[in-house]
Design a protein around this nucleic acid. Sequence first.
DNA 1: GAAATAGTGTCTGTGAGACAATATGTC
DNA 2: GACATATTGTCTCACAGACACTATTTC
Lengths: 241, 241
Amino acid sequence: MTQDQWVPPVVLLAVDLVILTLRQSHLHVLLVERGIEPYRGALALPGGFLQHAEEDITVAAHRELSEEADLDLETLSLEQLGVYGDPGRDPRGRVVSVAYLAIAPRLPEPTAGTDAAAAGWQPIERVLSGDLTLAFDHQRIITDGVERARVKLERSSLATAFCGPTFTITDLQDVYEAVWGIPLDPRNFYRKVQKTEGFIVPAGTARKATTGRPARLFRAGPCTVLYPPMVRPTESPSEKE
Amino acid sequence: MTQDQWVPPVVLLAVDLVILTLRQSHLHVLLVERGIEPYRGALALPGGFLQHAEEDITVAAHRELSEEADLDLETLSLEQLGVYGDPGRDPRGRVVSVAYLAIAPRLPEPTAGTDAAAAGWQPIERVLSGDLTLAFDHQRIITDGVERARVKLERSSLATAFCGPTFTITDLQDVYEAVWGIPLDPRNFYRKVQKTEGFIVPAGTARKATTGRPARLFRAGPCTVLYPPMVRPTESPSEKE
DNA sequence: GAAATAGTGTCTGTGAGACAATATGTC
DNA sequence: GACATATTGTCTCACAGACACTATTTC
């Protein structure tokens, strides 16, 4: 049934990272400028090939994360997003890429990592709208990553990963609003997160530089799974006839 | 920064299929007996290497599906589950496997496909309990696949993919109970699915061979996304203190 | 009629969404 | 005090869950 001497084809394996963060209440993704062909000069996700044949894929993802974005694993969520391996997505040959999604708290401008000509945070809207042109199929990967993040906010405490060690409830609301792209009622949001057992725990009171009543501070609670889940309003009320 | 002449390592790319179906109200997974080393004689997921360097991964998954299980794509859901590529998972070398999840309606016993020594449906409990020993990391892949299916039943109309072209509401309830592994109240279930716009549409009345009032028949409705979602009872009430 | 399965009605508790009202800070 | 933001309270509606009840079939 198989021909003599048939051997399975080999592929190059790469990892790509969708690193999301919040800047000025807007969701941003980390992009680098490619220094080599193909797509030289175009914006792309940080990533690269496995370093050697025995490197674990997850390890490779973490390696790229620190190489290209100076990000350590502190308070950082990193999960597999999927495989992108269309033949022809890379002119160099058959390259199959494993995409990872990382969520990071507010970060300093990453002034060019090790092997990227330029690096920077780009507003997610510019990517999703097609305003920016990205290398390979990276726009689709980012689209999938954002959607994954949106869904994860509903049932996991992931949102706290966008914040620093302590945060106010308003900070947390900003996260939800930015990722979901919709406004939420502060009063109802307040009640909801307080009622959700183990989501956040008190951590003193903030001294606010700005005007208004100072907010209480919280830190991430013990639970990673939210019950009941946060509900995303724009579910599909438009589904009605 | 890179050594002279450094070239990225290559890997072998495989696809593995988690094919789930319902038999006698129990969730089953399709397993084959391996005919070759490694793990010769052990049970494993159907799957195999890419056929040639230009084969699309999804195409390869469909190919394996028909090769190993005689299943065509009719009313069949097939989606990417994830990548499993730990170094050392396959003694033959660096093999990275893309796992797919397929949901199939009740099917005839698949009497050995093309290149598998034996094939058969195994109850999912035997796999999850560790009662059966599987090749490679296939137990973990199946565990992930079942969990994915459970979650998908909540918000998608996937459950109808387990049924034939027409089905009764009780049939549909059986699907939910089997996949979730918990009993549901028939009365509430009935109301719920009827109220969920576009989930199921009437399709005549069944003539039952058994006793009792004949049930109405339905077929899958136009909506693939359920709103409001079906709620899985055992969410995490045990999370309470 | 008895048994069995299908389908409906009703009540109750929880939680989402709207929004008024109150608290506590800065200027 | 004026203003701004934080926090609490209240009302209403939708829906999950429990479960009594009615309907329609076979025997």
